[in-house]
Design a protein around this nucleic acid. Structure first.
Ligand SMILES: [Mn+2]
Ligand SMILES: [Mn+2]
Ligand SMILES: [Zn+2]
Ligand SMILES: [Zn+2]
Lengths: 137, 137
DNA sequence: AAGTTGATGCAACCGAGTTGCAAAGTTATT
DNA sequence: AATAACTTTGCAACTCGGTTGCATCAACTT
């Protein structure tokens, strides 16, 4: 009998190894996006490179998306089931300058932009910085 | 008699050294944003650290702004005279996936976002990826 | 001229990300 | 069941952009 995470991995064509299930579990427990270093610390003993490659695999298969919030370490968060990481799937991200957490504002789609003529669009990264609702003003 | 670049530096409260004038000159000649490594190559013989600190000084004094386009190297471009780098001063940036140039779309202001309640806004980074008008489709 | 301040140059360091390679584990073939 | 082929994992070592420490040099102040 297959676990939920097993199925979740398989629908994204990722072979469900023990390691991958564990990483997926950690990711699904997060309320904010997580860096490779953060992820490493969630495990007693796990190799950074294996986690790194696990995240790469997850990202390539659109199970997660990466967020470059300008802090110097890339964050990762689970995609929605239906997400294909196309421009229309994208949402705004928020980096709190107080608690340094990076949140997916999944309810806020990235606004569409009228590019100059003969520019084509492939992707948009929109990161808002400020103070989040959990932090004192 | 003072040069233009000298005046430009002084209005931003930057002491106009020879080095700084040269860097400002290079920056003002660019049609796209430039990285530290790029800048280094524009000079026969110049220390990376000096250029680095020059850029830092320029940025702190809002003569230039930095752009984290996700390529792993930060780019820099001149601010407009009146720019204070406040959210309302900000514009969209464009990274061409073909020619790898990063452009300031100074005509396209960053759209305003309705953040969730009790979130405050300090800054926005919006980078659009795609193919620019100079590159074949 | 001597003293103070800031700018510059060189070397060395840092950390996030990445690669190479061998060992371990998995799946397919005989 | 044994072998072969392929994938995943773990360790070490490396890359590269950015950064710091410190000595030297230049500019300005008294
Ligand atoms: Mn997200
Ligand atoms: Mn710009
Ligand atoms: Zn916060
Ligand atoms: Zn281009």
């Amino acid at each position: 009998m297959k676990s939920d995470s097993e199925k979740q991995l398989e629908t994204r064509n990722i072979k469900p190894t023990a390691m991958r299930e564990l990483v997926l579990k950690v990711l699904s427990e997060q309320t904010a996006a997580i860096s490779l270093a953060d992820l490493e610390q969630k495990f007693e003993k796990a190799d950074k490179v294996t986690l790194y490659r696990t995240l790469k695999t997850f990202e390539e298969n659109k199970l997660i998306h990466s967020i470059d919030d300008g802090t110097g370490s890339v964050k990762y968060a689970l995609c929605k089931e239906t997400c294909q990481c196309h421009p229309e799937d994208l949402h705004v991200h928020f980096l709190c300058t107080k608690c340094k957490q990076t949140y997916c504002l999944t309810d806020i789609p990235v606004p569409s932009i009228n590019l100059p003529t003969h520019f084509t669009l492939e992707n948009i990264n929109m990161v808002v910085k400020g103070v989040c609702s959990n932090c004192p003003k």
